[in-house]
């Protein structure tokens, strides 16, 4: 069953088109990634789905409801963590959880959430005194305190150190394991690759691709490289193998360029002719490559 269905969503401000016909659907129980550079329309899309913004055109259904017309019902069942929001400096951790729980008809017990998100020791701490990671955990706990069916997490790990990011990823997996559908907005490739079941790639206010992360990577037809050093045996001809587009050799070092799964053919050929190689490296294709292939430009250069 689709938890969220978005069809031909359009939104503009003055003469600037932010969303130009966005469509996607999110299935129950998945972690759905919304990936794209800054300004691609990710946050605007999510804000329309949450009912914070009124779209100019297109249709949105969240749990079968219209987020503008049935706003209250939608907000009862949806948990949100927003980018760039803070809490009052002087509010205590338990107070804010208790307060937000009181906003919902059927909230979760916030004491359990404190435990689950390792905040029990900090229950009497002021928000302003928490570390970045602790604040982040508190925001996730707040997004879950209403016992939602869908949680939106927007740029959750921006500004966290690598260790804290890894920890946060584990936490997001736990959210999904508890039966909550997660919509994850991110501009980090590695994060999306690690966490998401399916990804919508946004660029210039449109969805340019939607697939599993590995499906996106496999779908691209870009050249990549395989490198090795010949240890023993005579080098054989590799140029004619399927997928191989070029071979260069400098002394013992060989670099083979190709498309698709040419590496399997190359290693089989080497084995057949008893060529012993070492330092074998195949450049792993990543979502970054997929993004370049989809949009024709580098991801990093755009933000």
């Amino acid at each position: 069953m689709a938890v969220i269905e978005v069809n031909d969503l359009r939104k503009g401000y003055a003469d600037l088109t932010v969303l130009d016909g966005v469509s996607f659907s999110v299935e129950e129980g998945e972690i759905f990634g919304i990936l794209g550079p800054n300004g691609a329309g990710k946050t605007t899309t999510v804000e329309c789905v949450e009912g914070l913004r009124r779209p100019d055109g297109g249709s949105i259904r969240v749990l079968g409801l219209d987020p503008v017309k049935d706003g209250r019902k939608v907000r009862e069942q949806v948990g949100v963590q927003l980018q760039h929001t803070q809490l009052p400096e002087n509010i205590l951790v338990w107070e804010v959880l208790d307060l937000y729980a009181s906003f919902y008809a059927k909230p979760r017990d916030w004491r359990g959430l404190l435990e689950e998100w390792a905040l029990t020791e900090k229950r009497n701490a002021r928000f302003g005194k928490l570390s970045g990671g602790q604040k982040q955990r508190l925001f996730i706990a707040l997004a879950l305190v209403g016992n939602p069916q869908v949680a939106f997490l927007d740029e959750l790990t921006t500004g966290l150190d690598p260790q804290a990011r890894r920890t946060t990823w584990e936490l997001i997996k736990r959210v999904r394991a508890s039966g909550v559908t997660v919509v994850l907005v991110s501009h980090f490739m590695d994060e999306v690759e690690e966490l998401c079941d399916r990804v919508a790639v946004f660029d210039g206010g449109r969805v340019v691709a939607m697939d599993t992360p590995s499906g996106l990577v496999d779908g691209i037809d870009a050249e990549h490289h395989m490198r090795f050093t010949v240890m023993a045996g005579d080098m054989v001809e590799l140029g004619g193998l399927p997928g191989v587009t070029g071979v260069t050799r400098t002394g013992n070092r060989v670099v083979v360029t190709g498309r698709g799964d040419f590496a399997t053919a190359v290693t089989a050929q080497l084995a057949r002719h008893h060529v012993l190689v070492s330092d074998l490296r195949i450049d792993k294709r990543t979502l970054d490559d997929a993004f370049v292939a989809l949009t024709g430009r580098s991801f990093d250069a755009t933000h």
């Binding site: 949450e50 927003l82 919902y104």
Partner: peptide, 17 residues
């Protein structure tokens, strides 16, 4: 103004309140 600046009003508008 601080409540608006810190996004507290916006955060609240995602809840039923």
């Amino acid at each position: 103004a601080t409540y608006r600046e810190r996004g507290i009003l916006r955060r609240l508008s995602t809840t039923p309140v």
